[in-house]
Computed example of a mutant assay.
Amino acid sequence: MWVFVFFDLPTETKRERSVANKFRKKLMADGFTMFQFSIYLRCCPSIENAKVHVERTKKNLPSNGYVGILTVTDKQFGNMELFFGKRATAVENPPQQLEMF
C-alpha cells in the first residue's frame, strides 16, 4: 500500500510558515518522503499499517489549509506515469519487505 498526503497550507506569515514546516517535519518523522513540493508518500506493508499512518497524519493536521490523504495499492502505484519534461521517468520500486519465519 502507498499513502499519499497532498497539502496546500498558508505560508504568508511567519507563524503560518512555522505551522506548515512542523506539519511537513511530522510527516517525515513518520516515514513519509517528498514526492513533489507539497506531496509526500509512504510505502506500507499492509492496509492495517496504512490506516495507522493515515490516523497519525489526521492527528497532526494544521488548523488552516487543505490536506488530502489517498491510499493506493502497489499495482495502482505502478500504473502511474511519470515525466520530467517530455521524457518518461521510472516509477519508484516499493522497498523490499523483510519476512520473519
Results as ranks from 00 to 15, higher is better:
86 K>D: 14
52 V>M: 07
77 F>V: 03
86 K>Y: 04
96 Q>C: 01
10 P>I: 04
71 T>E: 12
45 P>E: 08
99 E>Q: 05
24 R>C: 00
37 F>R: 13
92 E>G: 05
38 S>G: 05
57 T>R: 04
91 V>S: 11
58 K>F: 00
55 E>H: 02
60 N>A: 15
83 F>Y: 15
38 S>H: 06
70 L>I: 12
91 V>Q: 10
76 Q>G: 03
38 S>C: 06
83 F>R: 14
53 H>P: 07
52 V>E: 08
24 R>W: 03
17 R>C: 06
16 E>P: 05
82 L>M: 15
58 K>C: 03
72 V>M: 07
22 K>Y: 09
42 R>P: 10
15 R>P: 01
1 M>D: 12
14 K>T: 12
83 F>H: 13
22 K>F: 08
34 M>Y: 07
87 R>P: 03
32 F>K: 12
95 P>H: 05
93 N>H: 07
28 M>Y: 04
52 V>A: 02
100 M>G: 01
24 R>I: 10
37 F>E: 11
48 E>T: 13
83 F>N: 09
55 E>C: 00
31 G>S: 13
65 G>R: 06
33 T>N: 09
86 K>R: 14
39 I>F: 06
87 R>H: 14
74 D>P: 05
15 R>M: 10
97 Q>C: 01
35 F>C: 00
47 I>H: 09
8 D>Q: 04
10 P>C: 02
53 H>Q: 10
81 E>N: 14
36 Q>M: 06
78 G>E: 11
7 F>E: 10
48 E>P: 01
1 M>A: 14
64 N>H: 11
11 T>G: 00
4 F>H: 07
23 F>W: 11
21 N>G: 03
41 L>C: 12
15 R>A: 13
37 F>G: 09
15 R>W: 06
25 K>Y: 08
47 I>R: 13
13 T>G: 01
74 D>E: 14
58 K>T: 02
64 N>D: 12
46 S>M: 08
